[in-house]
Design a protein around this nucleic acid. Structure first.
Length: 326
DNA sequence: AACACGGGGAT
DNA sequence: ATCCCAGTGTT
């Protein structure tokens, strides 16, 4: 969970997850979607799929006993160099280094590395350095201490050098370069998207959902039918053109006519480099509700009670919470 | 080596 | 608005 996710965020998910899946055995026996359900909202969903696969491998290949050899750990899905080192040092007391974003920053400053520390030669050097520095007496304390130093003192923007236990050996500080090292990552230019979602009601307290089945991204997640508005000739922000586009899109996907009634909510969603403006409309299906079909993806009418049995991505969760606040 | 992956915290 | 987060897998 902690891969690229801040501790404070993980804390909102970890306790419930561990309560639901207290052991490797129980995690391995669970269904993929029930694991994903506990992960929903946290992002990087391949982590959840990998964790689940790893649990099954540990059960089947290692008899449910957690492997304690580096190569065995690395062969598990989702366990890379960092996680293998973290598990072996923290859980099993073995002397393996870790280099996460925090350690990388601490070492880059202590050694005043002016280049792009993400580049392979620097990474190689940092791992080697961390390997030499790692305490023999307590690899766990050392590794956690390095990460904690980066997270609490050696901050990315405003390093608190006055509080730092190693300030006297920090070359970046001696050179007054502590705020310029490491070099900021070049940011991918943002891509702006406008996305329309339909909350289609059937008049019997049900809403229409579709499932992302064949998509590579967010597979198995349920969502309100949604469509990206093409950038060219942007239909714009006023509800009229948007609702027309949404109506046409629904018609294309389901082969039926819909009536778009009124806008429900509008919010911003940031996914990696994309900045998505999501606007949800309420809509009705014209004619008989019964046999709605879509060749592209599974679709389903859902009652409010059945919502919790479905896996939602963050966008649909936001629309849902907006609906329930009414 | 570069990129995609999600969502949110902090400045 | 920007940078980053207890990284990994794929191309």
């Amino acid at each position: 969970m902690l891969q690229q996710t801040q501790v404070v965020t993980v804390l909102r998910y970890y306790p419930a997850f561990l309560q639901k899946f207290p052991t490797i055995q129980e995690l391995a026996r669970a269904s993929p979607s029930s694991v994903l359900a506990r992960w929903a909202g946290m992002g990087y969903y391949s982590r959840a799929r990998n964790l689940h696969r790893a649990a099954r491998i540990i059960l089947n290949r290692y008899g449910g006993e957690f492997p304690q050899r580096y190569e065995d750990l690395r062969s598990l899905p989702g366990i890379g160099r960092y996680t293998a080192g973290a598990i072996l040092s923290i859980a099993f007391g073995q002397r393996y280094p870790v280099v996460d974003g925090n350690v990388e920053r601490v070492l880059a400053r202590v050694m005043a590395l002016r280049g792009d520390v993400k580049a392979a030669p620097y990474q190689k050097y940092l791992w080697s350095l961390a390997g030499q520095l790692t305490s023999r007496r307590s690899p766990s304390d050392f590794n956690q201490g390095m990460m904690e130093l980066g997270a609490l003192v050696c901050l990315p923007r405003q390093p608190q050098c006055g509080l730092c236990p190693v300030k006297s050996m920090c070359r970046a500080r001696h050179l007054n370069l502590e705020s310029r090292i490491p070099k900021p990552r070049r940011t991918k230019t943002a891509q702006y998207l406008h996305r329309l979602a339909a909350v289609v009601r059937d008049g019997r307290n049900r809403v229409l959902l579709v499932q992302r089945r064949d998509e590579e991204l967010m597979r198995d997640f349920w969502e309100f039918p949604q469509f990206d508005v093409p950038a060219r000739g942007d239909p714009g922000r006023d509800g009229r053109d948007s609702s027309a586009f949404l109506g046409r899109s629904l018609h294309k996907r389901f082969g039926r006519e819909f009536t778009i009634s009124h806008p429900l909510c509008r919010f911003q969603q940031n996914i990696t480099f994309r900045r998505i403006t999501v606007q949800a409309f309420e809509a009705q299906l014209n004619g008989e509700v019964g046999r709605l079909q879509c060749d592209r993806m599974p679709c389903r009418w859902i009652t409010a009670r059945a919502l919790k049995d479905h896996l939602f991505d963050s966008t649909s969760l936001k629309i849902l919470s907006n609906l329930q606040n009414r």
